[in-house]
């Protein structure tokens, strides 16, 4: 009787995990912002580890537990790397907009100042804490591209909160 219960719960868990997996995959595809996608990828790793555990329970084939641990490590490192990537890529359009408004309030609304303050704002935000040389160069690079982009087109908000 008890093994029947186990069989039932394994089936139940597999169905729920599949649903969770699908939902998360759709979130990766649809997710409006980059952090949303990264979070969904993190969640995907968790769901995959859950799958491995349930399959191991069902078949008694537990070799994959090692893979689950390695997968957890890879998922963690991927999330960390993505977080660094978000930091290095610089500000969102919305964040830049806000920064510019604050700067305008501070310095007065002269057009000549705006470019400089914008460059300063982008630089400030990308390197507020760690002052390594490598990060500074990325900040400068993003500043340049940002400026080039904002000259071409008016700032379009890419985030949806």
């Amino acid at each position: 009787m008890s093994s029947e219960f186990l069989n039932f719960s394994v089936q139940f868990a597999l169905i729920l995990l599949s649903a969770a997996f699908l939902l998360t995959v759709f979130k990766v595809i649809m997710g409006p912002t980059l952090p949303d996608r990264i979070l969904a990828l993190d969640m995907l790793v968790a769901a995959a580890i859950g799958f491995i555990a349930v399959i191991g329970l069902k078949t008694g084939y537990t070799l994959y537990v090692d893979i689950a641990i390695a997968l957890g490590l890879v998922g963690f490192l991927a999330t960390v790397a993505f977080a660094r990537f978000i930091l290095a890529r610089g500000q969102t359009e919305e964040g830049r907009e806000r920064q510019r408004n604050e700067d305008n309030q501070k310095h007065g609304k002269s057009a000549a100042v705006q470019g400089v303050s914008e460059a300063k704002a982008a630089g400030e935000v990308t390197t507020p804490k760690k002052k390594s040389a490598a990060k500074k160069t990325t900040a400068q690079r993003t500043t340049k591209t940002n400026k080039a982009r904002s000259r071409k087109a008016p700032a379009k908000p890419e985030t949806k909160s």
Binding site: A13, L14, L16, L17, A20, D36, A53
Partner: peptide, 19 residues
């Protein structure tokens, strides 16, 4: 083990719904 996997999968599913 059965109870644990049922609760575990419910939590995983609700986390995905929460996303």
């Amino acid at each position: 083990a059965g109870v644990m996997i049922i609760t575990g999968s419910i939590f995983a599913f609700l986390a995905a719904v929460g996303l």
